[in-house]
Amino acid sequence: MIANVVIGGAIFAYAGWMFVRHVKKSSQGTCASCSMADGCHGSCGTYEHRHKG
């Protein structure tokens, strides 16, 4: 019984966390797709498009 709770709890907790993280990251676009994102101290995408036709 305890094993069930532990396994089930772990799976659902991990799944929930990953789900939230994915949606958050994807909707940020640009920066999230950058593999340096974790260690990056610059702010990507701050350059606003100034030459709009």
Binding site: S26, S27, A32, S33, H49
Partner: peptide, 14 residues
Amino acid sequence: PCLATVATIHKETN
């Protein structure tokens, strides 16, 4: 387009 692409399109086209 998938969610990540939609977000990037939004960011890039502003």
